[in-house]
Simulated assay, not measured.
Amino acid sequence: MQLKKYTDYALRVLIFTGLKSEHELANIKEIGAVFDISPHHLGKVVHELTKLDLLESVRGRNGGIRLAHPPEEINVGMVVRQMEGDFHLLECFESGTDHCVISPACTLKYTVNKALHAFFKVLEQYTLKDLIENEAELRQLMDKK
Results as ranks from 00 to 15, higher is better:
residue 68 A to F: 00
residue 142 M to V: 12
residue 109 K to D: 05
residue 37 I to S: 05
residue 41 H to F: 12
residue 31 I to M: 10
residue 38 S to W: 02
residue 93 F to Y: 15
residue 30 E to C: 01
residue 5 K to W: 01
residue 35 F to A: 02
residue 129 K to G: 07
residue 13 V to I: 14
residue 138 L to T: 08
residue 119 F to I: 11
residue 118 A to P: 01
residue 59 R to D: 13
residue 46 V to M: 09
residue 25 L to I: 09
residue 77 G to N: 05
residue 37 I to K: 02
residue 116 L to G: 00
residue 16 F to S: 14
residue 27 N to C: 05
residue 65 I to S: 04
residue 111 T to R: 08
residue 50 T to R: 13
residue 87 F to P: 02
residue 131 L to V: 02
residue 71 P to S: 12
residue 98 D to C: 13
residue 134 N to Y: 10
residue 108 L to G: 07
residue 44 K to S: 15
residue 43 G to L: 14
residue 18 G to P: 05
residue 60 G to I: 06
residue 61 R to C: 00
residue 97 T to A: 06
residue 107 T to G: 07
residue 84 E to S: 15
residue 102 I to R: 09
residue 51 K to L: 15
residue 43 G to T: 12
residue 30 E to G: 00
residue 19 L to V: 03
residue 33 A to E: 14
residue 109 K to H: 10
residue 89 L to Y: 14
residue 9 Y to L: 08
residue 110 Y to I: 03
residue 58 V to N: 02
residue 127 T to G: 04
residue 14 L to E: 01
residue 117 H to Q: 13
residue 16 F to Q: 08
residue 56 E to A: 09
residue 54 L to K: 08
residue 36 D to H: 08
residue 19 L to T: 03
residue 90 L to S: 07
residue 79 V to F: 06
residue 59 R to N: 14
residue 7 T to C: 12
residue 10 A to E: 10
residue 92 C to W: 05
residue 103 S to M: 00
residue 142 M to K: 04
residue 14 L to N: 03
residue 113 N to M: 07
residue 73 E to T: 06
residue 73 E to W: 10
residue 43 G to S: 11
residue 22 E to C: 09
residue 116 L to C: 03
residue 65 I to Q: 01
residue 48 E to M: 11
residue 89 L to G: 04
residue 133 E to L: 11
residue 51 K to V: 04
residue 16 F to N: 07
residue 8 D to P: 00
residue 66 R to F: 03
